[in-house]
Every structure is written in C-alpha cells, then in structure tokens.
C-alpha cells in the first residue's frame, strides 16, 4: 500500500506546531499502525530528518500508552482496539490518513504526537486506591465472598487502561468515563467501601481542577473506548457522588 500521511509536528510544548505531509510506500496490510509509523521514521532518519515522536510501550493492547487521533477518531476507525492493535488492512491503497495528538487542555502536547497524561495519574492519586496491609499480614482477597454479578461488573470497570481515548473523543474533553470506571471498580466491592465517600469526592474534585470538561452524555467515549467501558460507569459515579455529597 502507498499512503499519504498528514501528521501533526510540534517541536516542544511551547512550539506552535502544524500539519506536515509525508508519503510512505510498500506498507503491508498486516502491519500494525505503529509499525507503519516505524517505517516512516526509518525513512526520516535515513534522510537526517527528525523522526515523528509518538507514545507506545507494550504494543499488545494492554498498557494504554499508545494514543493518536487517526482520521478523526481516537485509536482510528476500528472498534475495541488501541492504536498498536489497529492494522493497516483497515485502510486502502492511496488513502490519505490524518494523524493528530489527543487534544485536551488537560493533555498538553509534549512533542509531536506525545501528550502529557499525568492528569490521569493525579486523579488516581486523589482516591483511586484502597488501604490494605500489603506486607507482613496480607489479607487474602477471597476471605470476603462477593456475588458473581458484582465481581464481574467491578472487573469490567477495572479493565480500563487509562489510555485517554474517552477524553480525546469527547466533544467536551470530559474524563468522566475514565473516572467513572476507576470509581466503579471499588464502589462495587466491599473492600472499596471504607474510603467510598472521600474517594468519589476527591477524584471528581481533582478531575475538575485538571480542566476536563463536563459530560453531555453524547456516548462518544463508550464507542471509542478500546476496553468497552460503558456509560453505566458514569451513572454509577454520579450516584456515588450524590450519596457522598449528601453525607459529607
């Protein structure tokens, strides 16, 4: 396949940045999207040009590090996959592909296609944990029986990999799907009850302080989420938040 790529290039956080066109030839449909970018970067390095900077780590769809807004969608046109699991067979020979960084005030660009997603880490630090002994007298998680439905639902929420596609896809750059998942994975389990009130209040407060937008329930996040995190998580967070506000 021969392709034209329109890629966002930006030297550093303070650079203005712009879209630049590139051509890549002989791309195999079996390549992943990131491998295709590797081919481009090899070309650029051979020409003594600066390679395109993009995030990646596991390249097997589990770490949440790869990002990219491809042809107007987070992680590209395929469903239920991260960019590293997106394959070039989703595109046609001769296509022009637009590649941009995830855009949100709370995700500032560091360089080219790499954005700073530490705002997610700060939300997690604000309450996305439980307090248990982990050394010496570790308690077996299975000592408290949990019904299967709750266990399964909590597990579904816990599959969120913190990639930020929900924020990138949302017209309001809202982080509510991510925070909803992180609140839900504990809200459904007995181990999560002790900090339940503080957790949701603190995580939402941090989310607001980071400058994420408000949810309009467009549902774009749910469609683009590589892990199929559902809007139910946002509804649950809203209930938890109201409960906590009435209490504290």
């Amino acid at each position: 396949m021969n392709l034209t790529l329109k890629i966002w290039r930006q030297k550093n956080a303070s650079d203005k940045g712009s879209m630049v066109d590139y051509k890549v030839n002989d791309i195999s449909p079996d390549m992943s999207f990131l491998e295709m970018l590797d081919v481009l970067n090899e070309q650029l390095i051979n020409k003594d040009e600066e390679p395109v900077a993009f995030d990646h780590d596991c390249r097997e769809g589990i770490c949440g590090m790869c990002s990219l807004y491809i042809n107007g969608e987070a992680h590209g046109p395929d469903r239920g996959v991260t960019t590293c699991q997106l394959h070039m067979r989703m595109f046609k020979d001769g296509d022009t592909i637009t590649i941009e960084p995830f855009r949100a005030t709370a995700f500032p660009v560091i360089k080219d296609l790499i954005v700073d997603r530490t705002s997610f880490d700060r939300i997690q630090h604000a309450g996305g944990f439980i307090s248990v002994n982990t050394s010496g007298n570790t308690i077996d998680a299975n000592t408290i029986p949990i019904n299967k439905h709750d266990a399964d639902t909590a597990f579904d929420s816990a599959t969120c990999i913190g990639c930020g596609a929900c924020v990138a896809s949302c017209k309001n750059s809202s982080a509510m799907l991510f925070v909803g998942a992180k609140v839900s994975q504990f809200a459904l389990l007995p181990q999560g009850q002790i900090e339940a009130t503080d957790r949701v209040l603190n995580m939402v407060k941090q989310m607001d302080e980071e400058g994420f937008g408000n949810c309009t329930n467009t549902g774009a996040c749910e469609v683009e989420c590589p892990k199929g995190i559902s809007l139910e998580n946002i509804a649950r967070m809203n209930r938890e938040y109201l409960k906590a506000s009435l209490k504290g």
């Binding site: 966002w8 969608e73 855009r103 017209k171 683009e224």
Partner: peptide, 16 residues
C-alpha cells in the same frame, strides 16, 4: 475551554 486547539479532522458522526 477544556479543548482549546481543535482537531484538524474530527469524525464526530462515527461515535455520537
């Protein structure tokens, strides 16, 4: 305010 730089290409119809 939560997104000051908009996308060059955005396919909103694909997901909402």
């Amino acid at each position: 305010k939560a997104r000051q730089i908009s996308y060059a290409k955005n396919n909103g119809g694909a997901n909402s």
